[in-house]
Amino acid sequence: MKKNKESDYEKQLNLKIEERLSRIENPDYLFGKRFDRKDYLITLAVAFFCLIFLIYGANL
C-alpha cells in the first residue's frame, strides 16, 4: 500500500514537473524582469569600487 502511494507520488511529481516545464517553455510565459545590461554594469561598478577600496585599504 505504502509502496503504491510512493510510486503514485513520484508519478504525480514527475507529471507536475513536466506540466510546469511546459508552461515555462510556452512562448506566452511571462518571466520575471530580467537582469539586463544596466544591472550588469551596476554590478561591475560595485565590484570595481570594492576592489579599488580593498587595494587602498592595504596602506591604511
Binding site: 560595485v46 565590484a47 569600487f49 570594492c50 576592489l51 577600496f53 580593498l54 587602498y56 585599504g57
Partner: peptide
C-alpha cells in the same frame, strides 16, 4: 573596508 567591501565584492 574588509568586512563591507570585501564581502560585497
Amino acid at each position: 573596508i574588509g568586512a563591507f567591501l570585501g564581502a560585497i565584492l
